[in-house]
């Protein structure tokens, strides 16, 4: 019971597909400008994710390892076609709103990723729970991006006007605004995950093009990567007095004089 609880809830915050795993960015940025489109997309993804997880999990002993990816894609494409035909038949408006991003669910990394990482290794019950949890996490993420983008970008929520048109911020309805909102919500989710005891994702200095040039980068590289080596070095050279602070400056200052210009 405990494991199923964990499997179900991990998609919400800890392994949220958009904010923590950063999967399926393309479609989520495209449809998250309005709440209705996000809800339509989220429900479609939940449907496809749950059913494909169930089928793939029950076929996991039949599918040969060599051809598993084509097999997964075939299963997923089958369910996406079902969703597409259902939407075309009963909810044509949402189908038009999602446009090309609906058939693109086939290649959405979340679904293939869960099939590969979870459904192919776990029993049917857990796979269904995982699909449901991940799908709900995806929908929550889409809706929270869309809430900000639609409220401040269009001045409405689910199409109902809340803020007068002259006070709306156009950029939020554009892809650039989507990236901005995504970045900030990602920070919020990192914080939430940190509160749950999950380490926050960290960008290392190696990714920065000026890592070799900037003093901060050098210090940080030493701190993160060569901690053991540096400590040994200091221990072996016992003549050198080690100040309390780990960063040593040549002019004897323990802390950097940030008041002075360091260009």
């Amino acid at each position: 019971m405990n494991k199923s609880k964990e499997v179900f809830f991990q998609g919400f915050i800890k392994e949220n597909p958009i904010f923590r795993l950063v999967l399926g960015m393309c479609s989520s940025l495209a449809v998250s400008s309005t709440m209705i489109a996000s809800l339509g997309m989220g429900v479609s993804v939940i449907f496809v994710l749950v059913l494909s997880n169930i089928v793939i999990s029950s076929l996991r002993k039949v599918i040969p390892d060599m051809v598993r990816i084509p097999a997964f894609i075939t299963v997923i494409a089958g369910f996406v076609t079902i969703v597409q035909l259902l939407l075309k038949a009963y909810l044509l408006e949402i189908n038009n709103m999602l446009g090309v991003y609906l058939p693109l669910i086939v290649v959405n990394c979340i679904i293939l990723g869960r099939a590969e990482a979870f459904a192919a290794k776990n029993s049917v019950g857990y796979a269904a729970l995982d699909g449901l949890g991940m799908g709900i996490g995806y929908t929550i993420a889409l809706l929270s991006i869309a809430f900000i983008r639609e409220l401040f970008g269009f001045g409405s929520l689910f199409g109902f006007r809340i803020i007068p048109e002259e006070y709306t911020i156009l950029i939020l309805t554009l892809p650039a605004g989507g990236f901005l909102v995504l970045g900030f919500l990602m920070a919020v989710w990192n914080k939430l995950a940190a509160l749950q005891g999950k380490p926050k994702a960290e960008l290392h200095c190696q990714t920065c093009p000026v890592a070799g040039l900037c003093g901060e980068g050098l210090i940080r590289l030493q701190k993160t990567d060569d901690v053991e080596i540096k400590d040994e070095y200091i221990k072996s050279d016992a003549n050198i007095e080690k100040p309390d602070d780990s960063v040593i400056y040549i002019d004897g200052n323990i802390k950097p004089d940030t008041e002075e210009e360091t260009i």
């Binding site: 003093g215 050098l218 050198i240 007095e241 040593i248 360091t262």
Partner: peptide, 8 residues
């Protein structure tokens, strides 16, 4: 004592 540090 000699103190070793990176620039500046």
């Amino acid at each position: 004592h000699l103190v070793i540090a990176s620039s500046p």
